[in-house]
Simulated scan of single mutants.
Amino acid sequence: MEVLSSRVLLRPADYQRTLAFYRDTLGLAIAREYPGGTVFFAGQSFIEIAGHDRGSADAAPFPGALWLQVRDVYAVQQQLTAGGVAIAREARAEPWGLHEMRVTDPDGVDLIFVQIPADHPLRRDVRG
């Protein structure tokens, strides 16, 4: 499997407190913000603080997750299923425009496989 990029996804109990810690206390630069979340630059990777998805039935049982960008999440789902990996949540288009699928590792950590469509804001060149 080819992973294009990754990030650590944190789902804190108190979004505002955790946001202030990474933004104000640590002074990390913001890569992007969206309703309910903030993504920080962290060297060759990113740290995303997500205030959404805390109370839904398929929220991660662990306060963090690994976010893995792939070219085709549906193909990865087929590959993992063929290899005997249990899919925690099947690939689907999300309201925020990404296509996501979840697998849980043996320690309960969510692995979120993400496909970014060509028309998504994450794929736009914002340099003007």
Rank of each mutant, 00 (worst) to 15 (best):
R7I: 03
Y74F: 11
D119K: 02
I87N: 06
F21G: 05
A75K: 13
A82W: 07
P35N: 09
I112T: 14
A42E: 11
T38D: 00
V39F: 06
A29G: 13
L9M: 08
G64V: 14
F113S: 05
V85L: 01
A118R: 13
S45R: 12
P35A: 14
I87E: 05
E100R: 14
F113C: 04
D105E: 01
A118L: 11
I49T: 00
A88V: 00
D53N: 15
V109T: 05
E100A: 13
R17F: 09
T104L: 12
F113M: 03
P95A: 03
W96R: 05
R54F: 13
V70T: 07
G128N: 08
L66I: 12
L80W: 05
A82V: 08
I47W: 03
D14K: 08
V85Q: 03
V103R: 04
A88Y: 03
A118C: 09
Y34L: 06
W67T: 00
I112N: 14
D14M: 00
V114Y: 06
V39G: 04
Y15P: 10
L4V: 09
Q16M: 11
R92W: 03
P63Q: 09
Q115N: 04
Q16N: 12
Y22R: 08
A13G: 15
A59L: 14
P35T: 09
A50H: 15
A93M: 10
F113V: 01
A13L: 12
S6F: 00
A118K: 13
L9C: 06
R7G: 02
I49V: 12
I112Q: 15
P95H: 01
P117L: 06
T38P: 06
A20Q: 09
L68Q: 02
I49E: 03
V109N: 06
V39I: 11
F21H: 13
E48A: 00
G51W: 09
H120W: 05
P106M: 01
V85K: 04
D125F: 13
G37E: 01
Y15R: 05
Q79I: 08
D110H: 01
D105I: 01
L68W: 06
Q78P: 02
I112M: 15
R127E: 08
E33H: 04
D119Q: 08
G97L: 01
D72F: 10
D58A: 13
V76G: 10
A82Y: 08
T18S: 15
E2Y: 05
Q69H: 15
V103Q: 04
A91K: 01
T81H: 06
A42T: 12
G51Q: 09
D125T: 10
S5Q: 11
D58H: 15
S56K: 14
H120I: 04
A75M: 07
L19S: 00
L66K: 08
L80C: 01
L80N: 01
P95M: 02
A93F: 00
R54A: 11
R89K: 15
Q69T: 15
D110G: 10
L10C: 04
R7H: 04
